[in-house]
């Protein structure tokens, strides 16, 4: 696999080669697709390795690839304030058990982002301190950004069902 000129990808391929499934740099963004069960190992390496020091989790989101397996992709965007470089980490989790380790222990800012992903996609983050819905209400059933959530389905708390 190629490092695409990225120090982060080079370091990952050297130190943790068995975690990386694929690398690419489409549109100039160095990306590593990694083993979801090793996500914390990867993130910790990127955060703590001298020369990398990705100390900021810019974003954590998910993508639903309905029809392919593993179905859900959790995406981490990391940035280093010291070195001003970026890397994107992707991990695919299966539909039957959409679970991945929570990054809150490494990046406290991941707390609400993981809650949002859980709320809208139903990906469960194990060892998350407070995995509740963030945007929707508790009475809501299902996860509306999943591609198989019916487009017309409405679940109002009051008023007609539109």
């Amino acid at each position: 696999m190629e490092d695409h000129g990225s120090a982060a990808l080079r370091s990952l391929l050297e130190v943790l080669p068995d975690t990386v499934l694929e690398t690419h740099a489409r549109l100039g963004d160095a990306t590593a697709c990694v083993d979801p069960t090793r996500i914390l190992t990867v993130l910790r390496h990127l955060r703590d390795e001298p020369g990398l020091e990705f100390d900021m989790l810019m974003d954590l989101c998910a993508v639903d690839f309905l029809g392919s397996e593993p179905r859900f992709e959790v995406v981490y965007h990391l940035y280093s304030l010291a070195h001003k470089h970026r890397v994107r980490i992707k991990a695919r989790v299966p539909e039957a058990a959409p679970e991945i380790d929570s990054a809150v222990s490494l990046y406290p800012g991941a707390n609400w982002m993981e809650r949002e992903v859980f709320d809208l996609y139903g990906v469960r983050f194990t060892d998350h301190p407070d995995l509740r819905r963030l945007l929707l209400y508790e009475e809501f059933e299902g996860h509306p950004l999943r591609k198989d959530y019916a487009k017309e389905k409405r679940q109002p708390l009051v008023g007609p069902g539109n």
Binding site: L135, L136, P144, Y149, K151, K153, R154, Q155, P156, V158, G159, P160, N162
Partner: peptide, 11 residues
């Protein structure tokens, strides 16, 4: 969509 009230005159 799933999130928005379709006119407040419904409530």
């Amino acid at each position: 969509n799933y999130a928005v009230v379709q006119g407040i005159d419904t409530i």
